[in-house]
């Protein structure tokens, strides 16, 4: 299974990839995760990969091989959609964050991204930020998105929740669980 998680530095993509990796490990599978640290984390486009199966070699997902692409932002979904294999699943957190190139007028934010993506891929969207705000903490949007993705990745609800509870900070277990379930059942 090849899963790719993309977003904007600071959105919590790293935690998401670690939860997916741990869930696969708990199911007795070989797992590799690739992360981005350093300068790229500073508000830039960030990418992490999770791969699992009976034996995994490279830690990255390459173009044309992603089973599931989880995008925390629309433009990032567009940027990396070509990593999907034919028949792959695209999960998009339906939000817009303007890159500096757009803010200063050097580039235009593309219109109708979701429609463009739907022409070639199976797309599921969720407004993670709105749901997270509804349940009281806009920072748990990654758990909402993970919840939606989890339904398309596999493993049981219990398997996911066991790892989630074990990974997020103790004080936020309840709200993260709630956020995950909102995404899972959306």
């Amino acid at each position: 299974m090849n899963i790719m998680i993309v977003g904007v530095g600071g959105q919590g993509t790293l935690l998401t990839s670690r939860i997916i990796g741990k869930t696969a490990l708990a199911a007795g599978l070989d797992v590799k995760i690739s992360e981005v640290h350093g300068m790229a984390q500073r508000g830039g486009s960030v990418v992490t990969f999770v791969r699992y199966g009976s034996e995994v070699f490279e830690p990255v997902v390459e173009e044309g091989t992603a089973d599931v692409l989880i995008a925390f932002e629309r433009l990032e979904a567009l940027r990396y959609a070509h990593y999907l294999k034919k028949g792959g699943t695209l999960i998009v957190n339906d939000t817009r964050i303007d890159p500096m190139t757009v803010v200063i007028g050097a580039a235009k934010y593309p219109e109708n991204i979701i429609d463009t993506l739907r022409a070639e891929h199976t797309v599921y969207t969720v407004d993670g930020g709105r749901i997270a705000a509804e349940i009281g903490n806009s920072r748990v949007l990654n758990s909402v998105v993970l919840g939606l993705a989890a339904r398309h990745i596999g493993f049981t609800e219990e398997e996911w929740l066991a790892v989630l509870r074990d990974t997020v900070p103790q004080k936020t277990v309840e709200i993260n669980t709630l956020a995950f379930l909102r995404g899972y059942n959306s």
Partner: peptide, 29 residues
């Protein structure tokens, strides 16, 4: 990458879709 090696060995990689045009998002303060 494995795709780079595939291109040399088999003349093609696994990419199935073309790359979309998207404004760059470099890191910022």
């Amino acid at each position: 990458s494995a795709n780079m090696l595939r291109r040399v060995l088999y003349g093609e990689d696994l990419a199935a879709f073309s790359v979309a045009e998207a404004p760059k998002r470099p890191p910022i303060l």
